[in-house]
Design a protein around this nucleic acid. Structure first.
Lengths: 196, 196, 196, 196
DNA sequence: AATGAATGAGTATTCATTCAT
DNA sequence: CATGAATGAATACTCATTCAT
């Protein structure tokens, strides 16, 4: 049943987020999903493949956050991207916890794995953001001299790292007013923080 | 000898950056340092302690990037922070490679370890950046309505993620003109991208 | 399967008897039991736990040697205890070889381990022997002035050390006629060696 | 200096008694003796040799407990052997603690090691006891039918195990009145417990 | 004689993966 | 489809011993 596979994925995401890849045992995933260890191997060739499938699943979801209607203007587009992402964090906190683990990592990359998905998502995000910046230039909000590509990368990084901040605040009891912070980010990205 | 300990640290940083924590074997570190496995354990109680010492060492170096003279104005302060950091990346590429690993991680944290150092560095960075932003407000560059704290966090995140971009470009052959990108970041953070 | 666990216990007793605790490797136990090293750890958390289980098992068997019907008189009771024990040695030579190792030992004790079992067995043995001595006093065989408790301890020690002698004779080619020796012990304990 | 060697031996006896052979590290012995690890190896070829020397030293001391003047009668000889041994236990508690460790042992025996010393001591003890028993027979205290050899073994075992009891009582807080117990043992061995 | 830094062989334990039922 | 007993390769860590100083 495909339902079983989905249950395994969900459990894996939760556990990888809690304990990281290496600290999560296949047995843990099996227990959490309510199946036997052997069953996990009916649906996945290896533990790596479980991780890869988790990432593929979540990155494909995340990429929808960068689908913005053409008719929106610069500021509203920025607002929509930021709001979609903040909403997504709320609903997929485990995913971002997984991402924010960092450091004690492995370098093993697999075809469908992290790098591939990350890059796919990143490319989607920056190309989408580039269009939004072009809107800003056309609307006279942003100077013509800037490099839309580099600025897009910068905007995306700013958004992503702000999401990580939100996650950290949720988990580590950092004090951070999510809504105020979000508005500050939007304000910042739309140039609202600088005196004319 | 302290020289031996230092050689081990250097080797460990390189290897953790190359292969991540779990994929790096203690034997690898010993070989790379030109000592026997047992010798590593003369200087460190465990593999974890090696990682912790690496982080402590490098985070304490990195925190110097946020020491800015009071007499500099807003824009020059921003420029100095960004330039110091870009220079530091060039000279400590292994460290940033280590940081940019992400995902397949562990959650084990030790007292002197990652969280502690990360937070210490982050707090130093944001408090330093907050002062710079206050300069910006006093100079009339930044609106009085902004939250200096949130903006500081955002500025720091923007800088850090730009550094990660540079590292990725160096390693994965991403095409990125480091200098142009750096100028774009400075420009962005000092409000230069927006039309008056 | 419980059968596998039992096979492991039997092999462990044999090996601990042959080579002692430290000289017996977990791999040896696995080989001797015809299972893989990992399998041993399915049934036991650690090598210590194997030892503890061996001891628990064998001490509980040994304690049966001190179960004597109330209706037997003093001399017959002594005879029965001694004979049961000599028989037990014959059938569980490995166990006594394990006990007689001595000296190059460890001091690590675990809850269910040695001390606990030893004391339980010793208490069972002495309390049982105390009853037999009381029979001896009641029957006028033993003087009323003696301390039944101390005498019980002494009788038990005499029996146990005679068993160790038998084991040593079996293993190290000590010349010792088991039956004659046994009769001498019974004779000794029932006062038969002394002139009236 | 021979003084250093003696200090090492004393420390080793104490530590072996505390923690057993395997749990005592050569480093521990060095620390306890106030010398460097390397120095230990100036006086002993190996850790085994330290143990062997400890045993040799202590067994040779212990064998003096069985040197009894010919002119003493049976009962006084028994009393002297028992009293010497009880006194020796008091003064060399570490040695008996070492002996009473048992079980988690090793089987490695070395030339000068345990078996050799133990047997030497045991032979000295039993041959000495045999003479005492012959006195008993000559004095009409013990029946002529007994086997002096087997009885000697039994007497020695009774004494040795009573010493172990005393040690255990000292260490594990067992309640045992040492003097009463000693008198009971003497009484027992001289036939005083049985009604005529 | 004394030191203690360096060594590396040796081992308990873990856990992803398999496969007979 | 599902199971979970069995596997064994892989690895962090220990400690007796050596030897240059």
């Amino acid at each position: 049943m495909e339902q079983t596979k989905e249950r395994i994925i969900k459990s894996a995401i939760k556990l990888f987020a809690d304990k990281g890849f290496h600290e999560t045992k296949v047995e843990d995933i099996a227990l959490e999903s309510g199946v036997a260890k052997g069953t996990v191997y009916l649906y996945f060739k290896s533990k790596e493949e479980i991780m890869d499938t988790c990432l593929e699943f979540i990155f494909s979801e995340a990429s929808k956050n960068y689908e913005i209607p053409d008719e929106l203007n610069f500021s509203d587009s920025i607002r929509m991207v930021v709001e979609k992402n903040f909403k997504f964090v709320d609903e997929n906190i485990d995913f971002y916890r997984m991402l924010s683990k960092g450091i004690y990592s492995t370098s093993k990359d697999t075809k469908m794995g992290r790098r591939y998905c990350e890059r796919k998502l990143f490319e989607k995000a920056t190309s989408s953001m580039e269009k939004i910046i072009l809107k800003g230039i056309n609307e006279g909000k942003i100077k013509k001299e800037v490099s839309p590509k580099y600025l897009a990368v910068t905007f995306i990084n700013t958004i992503i790292s702000s999401l990580i901040m939100v996650v950290n605040s949720k988990i580590k009891g950092f004090e951070l007013n999510e809504n105020e912070y979000k508005e500050e980010i939007i304000n910042f990205l739309t140039g609202g923080i600088y005196e004319k």
